[in-house]
Design a protein around this nucleic acid. Structure first.
Lengths: 87, 87
DNA sequence: TAGATAATTAGACAAGCATCTAATTACGAC
DNA sequence: GTCGTAATTAGATGCTTGTCTAATTATCTA
């Protein structure tokens, strides 16, 4: 949950939602230094929202759609959406 | 979004989801000083996730279900849930 | 009005966090 | 093996934020 608190990380997730990206590409897109992005990617990774795989020198990051959807489902359950609210 | 980052605030929302509560009741339930809870309630209020009304000496807080649902819908749209993921 | 209770505001302080530069590791090309 | 590129790790710094105590505001009751 805290992983989604930062705007940069949400931006990263949004980009990854459109397609896999290398760490360097993300850094360029976010207009941020590589270490900073690396930090955010690590946070997202620990939250299991993204996965990484090496491809030569690059490391490709991809969105973990399953976990994202599970998280959203939890959130929906949390607020009991679809409940009777007969005022 | 950042309003949901703090565990205490999520706890407050959960309690309010079960029913309206006075500020003091929330403070007691969260085992926290009144000013701290007041701070969190203010954050939630600015995010329009909760609403408040005065009832005598107490101030009653209630969950703003509409905004909560709108927020969840935004989140669902954000990740394009239900999209085609033909790998 | 005076006193008591409920809540907020003001101010301070410590912990957490996002960001940067510098250094290190990993891989590929020569 | 050496050089260059991609990325991470290490370490430092400044800002944000959650928490507290003390003081203030608002309401009710006698």
């Amino acid at each position: 949950m805290k992983a989604l608190a930062d705007p940069t990380r949400r931006d990263i997730l949004k980009r990854l939602n459109a397609g896999d990206l290398a760490a360097g590409e993300i850094a360029a897109a976010c207009d941020m230094t590589a270490p900073s992005v690396s930090h955010h990617l690590n946070v997202l990774k620990q939250a299991e929202l993204v996965a990484s795989r090496r491809a030569g020198q690059s490391i490709i990051y991809s969105l973990n759609s399953t976990v994202v959807q599970e998280f959203l489902q939890e959130l929906l359950d949390f607020f009991d959406i679809g409940e009777n609210d007969d005022a």
